[in-house]
Design a protein around this nucleic acid. Structure first.
Lengths: 337, 337
DNA sequence: ATACTCTACTAATACGATTTAGTAACACGG
DNA sequence: CCGTGTTACTAAATCGTATTAGTAGAGTAT
């Protein structure tokens, strides 16, 4: 129940080292353009150690008019396991620059969003990252325009904010090319039904890959289903009942791939020998535990988080240009192709 | 590339409202013990709105010697989906009190841990939450003793820090009792092999439940395996080959339950009719997608996170007593029992 | 001896708030 | 008319640091 005593200040250090507070400041900040003698420096550092002195970031921030804080606002957190990697990536990049992340997840609530921005501005964050937990368009609070800001895993329709998102097209292309390079010619795509960038992008990538390798696009090989294992099951069933069924299936995501596995098992088709399957998202819990382990494409969450912080850092406290950055989705090779 | 202009200060507001800066402070902080006339208050608020004034949290914090910040240090983040719920719970509880969370995940690195504490102290956090991503003993940096602190999902061996952890014993008991109440008498437990609190606690709960309901403890019904689906498969296989196999299996976690499902399917036993299965952790990806959906016990991550910041709040900026708090693990009923 | 430079510091101010200690103007009781 | 209170404010100090503008003293050149 004891209350804390006040921590020592620069004045305390100064007194102990028998120098002025100014000198302490110079020594601590390594301003050697103010020629302090080595002997004095040592006395100051000794006093710092003895008193266990730590600078007060609020005072420092007040005086220098900058904080070491970066705000991170996200709609939800951890809808999927890996989306959190964005926060981690951002955190690690911030850490490299001796900065800290102020994290608020709003649960999608508009009022909380606004209040979050306000409170973060009050705390003098140098910049704000506005993130969503899946790739989609978003409308950030207007107040964000008063401070350097990046959108992470989302973008505004008018592209007035810089943003970083996964390269869905390349991801779809990579998945499809992986199947092509394994020798497949009849490649199906079980797409999602939701009108989100991933749906359009991965499909575009699929078509690009076909075109690039001179394969015909066959409309009947593309089916749409709900983005869960049930949808994958249905999609695969439909495809395999085609007069000329595919020898490879690209699933919109890993959950759907799991459903496709069920369907293929039920039909007695071996993976990958009869039919190859590739997923998307690299949900470890699914992909690594399926039999055979699922080859899939990973969303570059961690890298996007890093990029966001580094991009902001590059621009100091000036407003960054509205770059629309895409990060490639790497292939995760397992055994289903 | 434009640089930001400085935001307005209280002085600006004061000037605009033609009052002193002191008056502005009184009005903004609602100090009506200083009888400011309604007319003046209105003028001040008008100026605040017109200038879009926001208080500077650093200046405020410096003067009042307290920040609105709570530090949260965790070893990893998002090893499992649900552990992140701790951060969310903490965040939401903090939000209720107009506080913000300063999050650092250290990746287990000792040096980063120490630096995190130091930086947080520099930032004048009112308290620190030290979290781990699974329930285990931990050794927090010594510097944590200089500030109010709670351990979240972990504890120090000497119980000198307050801590909040899941009630593993109750969780194990609940799981087992659920099976007992469904009419089962021969209940097996596939336990983990790692020497962690969950292993001991859930087992203790299992025995408690048996004892409580007058069921004999049969050593052969408890097997140990690695805590993944492979382990669950092996464990279930072993159990079902017993002369008198169990009619219900309590699995240490959901991944193992998934393996048990595989084994039972292979053996042609129906779930839950031939054998009931219950898991632990409520990993949505597994539990909800298994067939039949898995009845399991949830770890109270969100609630623990909440409890941590509320507990700290209750104690203001005094050092809280080393309470060792346990939060119950609720049953998540699905269809496997 | 004078002027100038260089070294090694220090005094004082400013950052933007909160808070303490006033004070001017007016009312009211005796 | 004096003393006391109340109302509605304001001036100034303060929090802990960074920074600007000095300054005292030694050395060096002329």
């Amino acid at each position: 129940m004891t209350t804390r005593e006040r921590p020592p200040t620069m004045h305390d250090v100064a007194e102990r080292a028998a120098v002025s507070q100014t000198t302490v400041s110079f020594v601590i900040n390594g301003r050697d353009d103010y020629n302090i003698s080595d002997e004095t420096k040592e006395r100051v550092w000794a006093a710092v150690r003895e008193l266990n002195y730590r600078p007060n970031a609020m005072a420092r921030g007040l005086r220098s008019n900058k904080s070491q804080l970066i705000g991170l606002i996200s709609d939800e957190i951890a809808t999927t396991v890996y989306a959190v990697q964005m926060v981690l990536g951002a955190q690690d990049a911030a850490w490299e620059q001796d900065k800290l992340l102020l994290v608020v997840s709003t649960g999608g609530n508009e009022e909380i969003k606004n209040r979050a921005v306000r409170i973060m501005l009050e705390h003098q964050v140098s910049s704000i990252i506005y993130a969503t937990m899946f790739h989609r368009p978003a409308r950030p609070p207007a107040a964000l325009r008063t401070i350097p800001c990046v959108m992470l895993d989302c973008y505004d329709q008018e592209h007035t904010f810089p943003s970083v998102v996964p390269n869905e097209v390349q991801g779809g292309r990579t998945a499809t090319e992986t199947l092509i390079q394994a020798g497949h010619r009849r490649i199906a795509f079980i797409n999602n039904v939701d009108p989100i960038p991933a749906t359009f992008g991965r499909f575009a990538g699929y078509r690009e890959a076909l075109a690039l390798h001179g394969l015909p696009y066959d409309d009947s090989l593309v089916v749409h289903a709900s983005s869960d294992s049930g949808g994958g099951y249905l999609g695969a069933m439909t495809l395999m009942q085609l007069p000329a069924p595919p020898t490879a299936i690209f699933c919109f995501n890993d959950a759907m791939a799991m459903g496709a596995y069920d369907a293929l098992r039920k039909l007695g088709r071996a993976i990958p020998d009869d039919v190859a399957v590739i997923g998307f998202d690299n949900i470890e819990l699914i992909a690594a535990h399926l039999y055979p382990p699922l080859t899939t494409v990973r969303l570059p969450h961690y890298e996007m988080g890093q990029w966001a912080v580094n991009f902001l850092a590059e621009h100091g406290d000036t407003f960054p240009p509205p770059v629309q950055h895409r990060v490639d989705c790497p292939l995760i090779s397992r055994a289903s192709v």
